[in-house]
Simulated scan of single mutants.
Amino acid sequence: MVKRPILALIHILESFTEWTGKLISWLTLFMVLVVVAVLVLRNIFGFSAIPLQESVTYMHGIVFMLGAAYTLKHSDHVRVDVFYHRFSHRKKALVDMVGFLILLLPVCIFLIVYSLDYVIFNWKIKEGSSQPGGLPYLYILKTLLLALPITLIIQGTAQFLHNLAYLLGWKPLPHGAEEDTATAPQVTGDKELHHG
């Protein structure tokens, strides 16, 4: 049956996004520690640590580019919501599915196609830092231009399948609805308590 493989695939894709998001979130702590170290070395010891300074840029790039899919998974992207919050779960699922097909997926494919030759060229020449003594791995950092759309496609596909599974009756709620119900205030219960 098709149901079981699709539900398993949703779990695998969303687990990948969750795992990578939690893993790279630790880089924010390391960024703070490295920035403090750079400031101490520069202002107290008069030592300019270029590799450390550049490592902050690398970590920031990784957090921003690879954290986008994790942010998408938890519906934390900035959203101009005029009508969406009033929609039923079914309409929200349909809107999210259409949004993936006509917005997210084409933009991600465009980014991959547009960046692929550039990233390959940088790997061929092994581009490094323009600063003396800087990190020699700029080509790896530029690979994030491909990692961003790929991870977004992975999470977008998971959400698309999750919503499809909901519409087919295989899941009780569409993607993101669990978080909405968990964080929503229990107004009905309070009213019943006051009237009871």
Rank of each mutant, 00 (worst) to 15 (best):
K124H: 08
P51H: 07
G134T: 12
L103I: 15
V98Q: 10
L104G: 08
G67L: 09
I120C: 10
L135A: 14
Y70G: 11
S25H: 03
F87C: 14
A37F: 01
L105N: 11
Y84W: 11
L104T: 14
Y84M: 05
S115C: 10
T71Y: 07
L94E: 12
E127I: 08
L103T: 12
P149V: 00
Q53N: 03
I44F: 04
G128H: 04
I150E: 01
A49T: 02
I150N: 03
G61Y: 04
T20K: 07
G46M: 03
L104R: 08
I150Y: 04
V40R: 02
Q155M: 10
S75H: 12
V98L: 15
P132I: 11
G61N: 09
I50L: 05
Y84G: 06
W26A: 07
P106H: 14
T71Q: 13
S88F: 09
V38F: 00
Y139P: 08
L135S: 15
L105H: 13
A69N: 13
G61S: 08
W26M: 05
L135Q: 14
A49Y: 04
S88D: 12
L152I: 07
L145E: 09
L72A: 12
Y139L: 13
S75Y: 08
C108I: 09
L146Q: 11
V63M: 02
K92P: 07
Q155D: 06
A69S: 15
V80M: 12
G134Y: 15
V80G: 06
F30H: 01
A49R: 03
